[in-house]
Design a protein around this nucleic acid. Structure first.
Lengths: 199, 199
DNA sequence: ATATAACCGGAGCAGTGCTCCGCATACAAT
DNA sequence: ATTGTATGCGGAGCACTGCTCCGGTTATAT
């Protein structure tokens, strides 16, 4: 049973119009989400992409799936940034710098923080993997800082992630608070430093 | 122009059915909001109260108005608690104790934190007044703690409110995080303490 | 008993997420 | 070039949301 040609089980490549629509959806979705946040209307995205709603839903059956494609790469890049910072900076600097970077990113995509938190909780989410990977990478930075005695040992990566996302949430609530984002981040980070006579 | 009777401009008391519905709405709304959070469907509330949607909207033209009646009293009580703590405890204890109380309250009403933050920003909201009053009262506690040198002087009441609401937000995101709420509150509070050689 | 102001309740509008399926079409085989 | 069909398209439709508007009901004062 061996046909000469490569006709094993090629499921046939997607049609050109499908590929075109796929790309167009991502293009428009990026713009709309940057404008209106992760809660943007999918109908609106379809309309602005000049395609039918059904088409959008076939390409991305759930909102998460769309966000995954939209954000997955960014998350991976943030994880890579963490790894880079790990070798190039002393532990404490690496951690604070990454957190600042993440906060800046969260400022662009409104609603991202909620999505991330929900995703980390929901294992069936398609965004789960990339979020978890990112958290684990940051967990290494945290571990380094703790080993160096620069961060309290009773702080988990989950804690840290929750806090930095909460700061992102604050910034989303009001422009005036967004301006104080760095200040608040500083306050929180000070809370993570070990004090004399504490674990 | 002086009629003997008291017919000056009495706008006439509300009808008994109106009073009954008003009370019933509040009763049901409390239950539903406690169950489903502040984003509960108003249609659902009307349905469960056994009244028409129009009736609900006439009694409370906006969601905020309903929440105001539902939460205003609680807010006032929280403000009163703050005043009580101010005289009964040393500055730092008073502040931390109040914050813990607020966090506990926020845990009951899901979505409350978002409402509060939005309300503080929106002066036209009917909840604005009570929220602002509460924040100002807490601001006094904060001022005392700062004067006693127990809290950094560059922390504003707005900062503090944002942070404690953010902690409430975290707890809403996942049950597992709700369990660590007090721990996270501790972390944040440590960040507020002044360090040597800092303002 | 009656007049009427106050009140009730739901139909209706515009929006949302999401499903389903008849029809058009890109592509392969002839 | 023609034809067959798998594949993809797009919108009608369902169930929900917040909110408005108004014809019919009813409590209350006369």
């Amino acid at each position: 049973m061996g046909t000469d040609h490569v006709t094993e089980k090629q499921p046939r490549a997607p049609r050109t119009d499908a590929r075109r629509n796929h790309a167009r959806i991502l293009e428009v979705a990026h713009a709309v989400v940057a404008e209106q946040g992760t809660q943007a209307s999918l109908r609106d995205i379809a309309r602005r992409a000049g395609i039918g709603l059904g088409t959008l839903y076939r390409h991305f059956p759930t909102r998460d799936e769309l966000l995954e494609t939209l954000l997955g790469e960014r998350f991976d890049r943030l994880a890579a940034t963490a790894t880079a910072l790990e070798t190039a900076h002393p532990p404490a600097d690496a951690l604070t710098e990454w957190l600042a970077e993440y906060a800046a990113f969260a400022a662009v995509y409104r609603g991202l923080t909620s999505s991330v938190m929900a995703t980390l909780e929901d294992e069936t989410s398609s965004l789960h993997a990339s979020c978890l990977a990112m958290r684990q990478t940051v967990g290494r930075l945290l571990g380094n800082a703790q080993q160096a005695g620069l961060v309290r040992s009773d702080v988990t990566a989950t804690d840290l992630f929750a806090l930095v996302n909460a700061l992102g949430w604050i910034a989303e609530q009001a422009p005036s608070l967004a301006a104080r984002r760095d200040h608040l981040l500083g306050l929180v980070l000070d809370g993570l430093r070990p004090a004399a006579g504490r674990p």
